[in-house]
């Protein structure tokens, strides 16, 4: 069964010169699969992530998610289904209420989506923290006083709190130090293996997608210009955009 099918998504931004952000994008994603969405800035990959997560509406096109017409949903039914499609962004501090504690950031989705009864929320928060490799004592800390890598772990904990079938990750590891980034990627892979979560992993860094993606779709000027198994796209890129992405990855020069 296919988890997500998008067909013919188009979106133009009216401001400025009427920029076409998405120009007929179609893609599909199976349960437990990671699709890497690669592309340079302005290629439309973040717009696509926003359209799929219903943060932006497409002008035309269709999206089926978990067997339902995803674009037909609105109001309370859409809010309920959002539990099944979560997001993690690059700027994690911006994604949290800055006055929130770690506990309140994790309790919100548990409460909103009634994941566990009220009396069990504290225990569930501790379990989520443990699952992403943070001590339970972190619950009382302010979101602002934890490190960038820890904050990204909390964002992941918040995303998995509602047992999603799909998590859209938009440059989720791009701002992290390399050693921290590797740990976060390992965590994401482990969570996928345990829970069968599908990821749509947006990144301009092909080395990140090479680590975690089963398939890669390359975007340029609002279109998917190439798609295929990760190893094929990297070893034998067909489009100029994919070739540029492959060439751009810095290699450690050891003579």
């Amino acid at each position: 069964m296919t988890l997500l099918v998008a067909e013919g998504l188009c979106k133009r931004y009216a401001a400025g010169r009427g920029v076409t952000a998405l120009d007929g994008v179609s893609l599909h994603l199976s349960p437990g699969e990671t699709l890497g969405l690669a592309g340079a800035s302005g290629s439309g990959k973040s717009t696509l992530a926003r359209v799929l997560t219903r943060l932006a509406e497409p002008d035309t096109g269709s999206i089926r998610f978990a067997g339902e017409d995803w674009l037909a949903l609105s109001g309370a039914p859409l809010r309920r289904r959002r539990a099944r499609m979560q997001m993690v962004f690059q700027d994690v501090l911006g994604a949290f209420n800055p006055r929130a504690t770690v506990a309140s950031a994790l309790e919100d989705p548990l409460r909103i989506h009634a994941v566990v009864p009220k009396g069990e929320r504290a225990r569930e928060v501790a379990a989520l923290l443990d699952r992403v490799g943070l001590p339970a004592a972190y619950a009382g800390r302010s979101i602002r006083e934890v490190s960038g890598g820890e904050r990204q772990r909390i964002a992941i904990a918040r995303a998995i709190a509602t047992h999603p079938a799909l998590i859209v990750l938009d440059e989720a590891v791009s701002a992290l130090d390399v050693s921290v980034r590797e740990k976060i990627l390992e965590l994401l892979v482990t969570l996928q293996e345990e829970r069968g979560i599908a990821y749509l992993f947006v990144s301009h860094d092909l080395s990140v997608l090479a680590a975690v993606a089963h398939r890669i779709a390359v975007m340029e000027a609002g279109r998917i210009v190439e798609t295929g198994p990760t190893s094929r796209v990297i070893a034998d890129p067909q489009s100029p955009a994919a070739r540029a992405l492959v060439r751009a990855v810095p290699r450690l020069v050891i003579e």
Binding site: V178, E182, E186, L206, S207, A210, A211, V212, P250, R251
Partner: peptide
């Protein structure tokens, strides 16, 4: 901890 296209994948 450097990762490039020749690094074995995590999946």
């Amino acid at each position: 901890s450097h990762r490039d296209l020749a690094t074995p994948p995590l999946i």
